Simulated scan of single mutants.
Amino acid sequence: MREPLSVVVTTYNSAQTLEACLGSVAWAEEIVVLDSGSTDATAAIARRHGAQWHEQPFAGYSAQKQAAIDLARHRWVLLLDSDEALPPDAAARVQRALEAPACAGYQLWRREWVFWRWQSPRARLNHYVRLFDRGRARMSGHSVHEAVEVDGPVDRLDVVLDHFGEPDIAGRVDKANRYSTLQANEDARRQRAWLGWRLIAYPTIAFLRYYLLRGHWRAGWAGFIAARVHAFYAFLKYAKLYESRVRNAPGAVRHPRQR
């Protein structure tokens, strides 16, 4: 007998993409939505799809997702972002895996929307644990780039999520600014060595890895711009970390607005 499935989604003003997200998992036994104060049509869309609706103030990306997972009734959970959707053939593949799960979690592939087009099908896709036994899994606790950590073997399903992400360059840059602040604050608790060299070298390394090794050069100018924004994120992350160290050094001079 197949394991029943709870789909878990966290939302905040997600009306533009939530219809596609929830519509792609209508076959699941339960859909749980945990919202953090939406003011658009997110609630109406969730209820129209029969989702269990919950609200709480935003607790951070990792903690918010863990709270949503804890609301699920079933042992097996499919965790989605509100701007992700499964393809039509995913239902049969997920349900087949749940007939006799051979591991504690499954990774799914994800393809990215890059400003005005999908990434090339010949580019390297990322993969993430999204289907898992919640009794043997927890969110990582990271401020950004949070991930599901599984206590047990992990396999990979031949399922490709569609990730809509930010619709334009301005949105991607805004996200890079927000995420770099969160990442710098998290890194400030560690003792990063060679910070100056990281600030100089790592943005170029990040660009080459994203553009060449991951194959985003195949997406033309969209891939080039995305790689540059990714490198900018890497630069901001280390620049903000350096700024934090200088400001907090003994005898540091404070700007009037920072006193």
Rank of each mutant, 00 (worst) to 15 (best):
F224E: 00
E186T: 04
A206H: 03
R214N: 13
H142P: 02
V144G: 01
Y179P: 00
E186C: 01
L195K: 01
A219E: 02
A170M: 08
D151M: 04
L208V: 14
G171S: 08
L199R: 14
A170D: 12
D187H: 08
V144W: 00
K175H: 11
I225L: 15
L213T: 09
H145R: 13
F164N: 02
L195Y: 02
W194D: 12
D168R: 09
L157V: 07
N177M: 12
Y211S: 04
F164E: 06
D174K: 10
A222E: 12
Y179F: 12
Q191N: 11
I169R: 05
E149L: 15
A176F: 00
A193Y: 05
D158R: 11
L199D: 04
K175M: 08
V144E: 04
V154E: 07
M139L: 15
M139G: 05
V150Q: 03
E166R: 13
S180N: 05
A219S: 15
R209E: 14
A188F: 15
A193N: 04
Q191Y: 04
L213V: 13
R214D: 11
I200L: 15
W217S: 01
W197H: 11
Y202W: 13
T204H: 07
G165R: 08
W221K: 07
R138V: 11
A184Y: 10
H163D: 12
D187R: 12
V154Q: 07
N177G: 02
G171R: 07
E146Y: 06
W221P: 03
W194N: 14
A222C: 10
S140P: 06
L195R: 00
G220C: 05
W197Y: 11
R192V: 15
I169K: 03
R218H: 08
A184T: 06
D151V: 01
V154G: 09
V150H: 02
L195Q: 00
R189P: 02
P167A: 09
V159E: 03
E166A: 11
I225A: 15
F164P: 02
W217P: 01
Q183A: 12
R178I: 07
E166G: 03
A222T: 04
P203C: 09
D174P: 02
Y202C: 03
E146C: 07
D187C: 05
E149H: 08
R198L: 10
A227P: 00
Q191F: 06
W194H: 14
A176H: 01
R156Y: 04
D187Y: 09
L161I: 13
D155T: 05
A219R: 01
K175T: 13
R218L: 02
Y202D: 15
R190L: 13
Y179G: 00
N177S: 05
V173R: 04
D151Y: 02
R192Q: 11
A227D: 01
A188G: 04
G171M: 08
I169Y: 09
R178Y: 10
A206R: 02
V148E: 01
F224W: 15
R198M: 04
W221M: 13
R209W: 13
R172H: 11
Y211E: 05
V144H: 03
A193W: 12
W221Q: 09
A188T: 04
L213Q: 14
M139S: 05
R192W: 05
W197M: 13
Y179E: 07
A201R: 13
D174E: 14
I225E: 10
D151C: 06
